[in-house]
């Protein structure tokens, strides 16, 4: 197990290196002088020269990369042009809302999707199964911003139950925090509920045909326990795989949802950075998301060995 973990972590290094090279070149290969671009439209030659020297743009490319990567490794991400702040500070201050939204979305998704999928599989062909799968098709076809604005219109504008937008820090009270996050989390989770419910149904259906399910029934086990103990536990590996995928895709969804609900998280930061050509921030955010992707993948792979004792590396 330990050797597997070490191997798996070592294997992420080339991936991260590839991402780093890509991000590094992104800026260098953009047409025009990166220094001029970084300096912005109103900079004079002296300022451009200063930036060039600061970035080491006179040095050969490999040396530049070495410098840049060692900065990144020390979490020195540079200074944002637009916010005039250290990017690392910027990211730290924006993590909480994004993390809150993502976490809540995933919790909602799993709590709703897995039971729905399991029921659909157990009642295969019934009206419940057809209803759940019908909802799932609907969930797939509606984009996040449509669902988001739809929910705002009904629950905030018409009924006035929930706020239209904004975010409250968890430090200012969990109630307020949850109150403001419910709508965005639901909006964001719809498509993942559809996706994961479908996957759960397929996975559980397959397992329900297995011999050990018959064995469990032959022991006199109740149907609900047969489902929970035997079916779901065996169906878990593919379900966890898609949950991992969903988290990765979710980060993309966060950008849109944060814009719709004006939540000051990393998604909104990304949008603002792109609109303002804030290159150090863009770089750092992309790099940050890449690290998160890689870590999620690692967590999913490791979880396999916990879920299924036959999987050993």
């Amino acid at each position: 197990m330990l050797s597997y973990l070490i191997k798996r972590i070592l294997a992420t290094i080339p991936v991260m290196l590839f991402v780093a090279v890509f991000i590094f070149l992104l800026l260098r290969l953009t047409p025009g002088d990166p220094a001029a671009m970084l300096a912005g439209d109103f900079a004079n030659d002296a300022q451009i020269a200063e930036i060039r020297a600061k970035l080491g743009l006179d040095e050969p490319l490999w040396k530049q990369f070495g410098l840049w990567i060692s900065d990144m490794l020390r979490f020195e991400l540079g200074e944002s042009f637009y916010y005039k702040k250290e990017v690392s500070e910027l990211i730290l201050s924006r993590i909480e809302p994004t993390l809150s939204l993502s976490l809540l979305t995933i919790i909602f998704t799993v709590l709703i999707a897995v039971p729905l999928g399991t029921i659909a599989a157990y009642k295969q062909g019934s009206w419940m199964d057809r209803g759940i799968m019908g909802f799932s098709v609907l969930g797939f076809s509606l984009p996040v911003f449509v669902i988001g604005y739809g929910l705002i219109y009904v629950f905030s504008v018409q009924l006035g139950w929930l706020p239209v937008q904004g975010y409250a820090r968890i430090a200012d009270g969990v109630g307020e925090w949850l109150y403001r996050l419910i709508l965005p989390a639901i909006a964001l989770s719809v498509i993942f509920v559809a996706f994961i419910a479908r996957m759960t149904r397929t996975s559980v259906l397959e397992v329900l045909g297995e011999d050990y399910i018959r064995t469990a029934r032959a022991k006199g086990q109740t149907e609900s326990r047969v489902l929970m103990r035997h079916a779901l536990r065996n169906a878990a590996v593919p379900i966890v795989t898609v949950i991992g995928l969903a988290i990765a895709i979710l980060i993309g969804g966060v950008v849109v949802t944060e814009s719709v609900f004006t939540i000051p998280g990393l998604g909104l930061l990304t949008v603002e950075a792109v609109l303002n050509r804030d290159f150090p921030t863009i770089q750092a955010v992309i790099l940050f998301f890449s690290v998160v992707y890689v870590l999620i993948n690692l967590a999913v792979d490791v979880s396999y060995t916990l879920l299924d004792p036959r999987i050993r590396y």
Binding site: D211, T215, G220, N234, P309, R310
Partner: peptide, 25 residues
């Protein structure tokens, strides 16, 4: 009643002992 009887009054074993046992328990 069937569930009560299974395992107590009547029990069954199957052809494939590998697939008849839950692999993750």
């Amino acid at each position: 009643r069937l569930r009560d009887l299974r395992g107590t009054k009547m029990a069954m074993i199957f052809q494939e002992p590998m697939t008849a046992l839950n692999p993750v328990a």
